[in-house]
């Protein structure tokens, strides 16, 4: 039944786009209003709540001590998870992470890891087998489309606000701070949606039902650091290059939201 509603929405979307319009009156390359609330949580070492239009995504960062990966014993651990909390959307069900949730977590993780914005070697501790571990958890509170970009913003803002607990006698003293994590570069992502031949940025949930494919491009000021194409539609090779250019250009506006 909901598939039928989706088909109806799809028709509406296509109809509007053929008239050059989006339901909320935005241009094809306009973002919705972005607001980031920093450190709304106190138990987590870092946190941020990103509002992107009506989408609301929370990110919590915890710092623990953990055994390093066996192939990188002198590096800290970075791990990213995402929960599509069932209260976040009528389309989310309780249970183990869906493939979409896993994909989201892995793409955000790639953006953070490839950019080397966190110095993982600095997370190792002299004289200890264990290393510091940064756990990034995305928690979708309200899904109105474009979870990728909202999650990337929330994660980046949470990392920027992360206080590292003091390490003493091989233990973490959470009540004392050893300074901020200070990620080196801001990473942001731009998500482009494809409807027939048209490309839109920042799709809403309704638009999402009518799109055929997406391309998410994460960037630092100098580099592309993660890309993910999802959905069945094909992008032309020229599309991809054009969208990389668009991402660099849009990233300026997105990084401003992080300030």
């Amino acid at each position: 039944m909901s598939e039928i509603q989706d088909e109806l929405k799809r028709d509406v979307l296509r109809n509007m786009l053929s008239q050059g319009r989006r339901a909320d009156g935005r241009g094809n390359f306009d973002y919705r209003a972005i607001q980031i609330v920093k450190n709304p949580l106190q138990n987590a070492e870092g946190s941020a709540l990103c509002h992107l239009g009506k989408t609301q995504v929370l990110c919590g960062v915890k710092v623990d001590l953990a055994m390093p990966f066996s192939d990188r014993p002198d590096e800290g651990v970075l791990s990213t998870g995402a929960e599509f909390s069932p209260l976040g959307s009528h389309t989310f069900e309780p249970g183990p992470p869906s493939r979409a949730a896993i994909e989201l977590a892995r793409v955000v993780d790639r953006g953070i890891r490839s950019s080397e914005t966190i110095d993982l070697k600095a997370l190792a501790i002299e004289g200890m087998d264990k290393v510091q571990a940064i756990y990034i958890d995305l928690w979708i509170l309200d899904h109105d489309g474009n979870l990728f970009d909202a999650s990337m913003l929330a994660a980046m803002a949470a990392l920027q606000g992360t206080r590292m607990p003091k390490v003493e006698d091989k233990k973490l003293i959470r009540t004392e701070s050893a300074g901020m994590l200070n990620p080196k570069v801001p990473v942001v992502s731009c998500t482009f949606a494809k409807v027939d031949e048209r490309i839109l940025i920042d799709p809403t949930m309704d638009e999402h039902k009518g799109i055929d494919g997406q391309l998410t491009i994460a960037t630092t000021p100098e580099h592309v650091c993660a890309v993910q194409k999802s959905g069945w539609a094909a992008f032309s090779q020229k599309d991809i290059l054009d969208l990389v250019d668009q991402s660099f250009s849009k990233a300026v506006e997105l990084r401003r939201a992080l300030d």
Binding site: N43, A44, G60, V61, K62, D64, W139, R174
Partner: peptide
């Protein structure tokens, strides 16, 4: 419970 909810570990 969210994994970041507690003051202690993840």
């Amino acid at each position: 419970m969210a994994p970041f909810c507690s003051l202690e570990e993840h």
